[in-house]
Amino acid sequence: MRPKLSSRARLQTDKVTGKPIVLYPEGVLMLNPTGHAIVSLCTGAVTFQQIVANLAARYKIPEPEISPQVAEYLNRLRERNLLEMQHGNEAAP
């Protein structure tokens, strides 16, 4: 399962704050640095496990610790209908 930011959403930089935001119909998410890192990896090319590994290495946090946090964040995106799940070969690059 490789999460991909929905085509109805757009990641861009906010002109006023200079911070990353996700725009979607009738809504906006203001991203913190971790949120930005997660959303940036939701390209449809990377598996959930690879996202976890990437963030664990970047923030020097053990994978088992960061994994549930990533899962929860992705779930929140999914509940807003902002995530598409690309199914396919789990070992894909």
């Binding site: 906010d14 002109k15 006023v16 935001i21 725009l23 009738e26 906006v28």
Partner: peptide, 8 residues
């Protein structure tokens, strides 16, 4: 509007 901060 965009300069003022409007997003939508």
């Amino acid at each position: 509007a965009a300069e003022l901060g409007v997003l939508h």
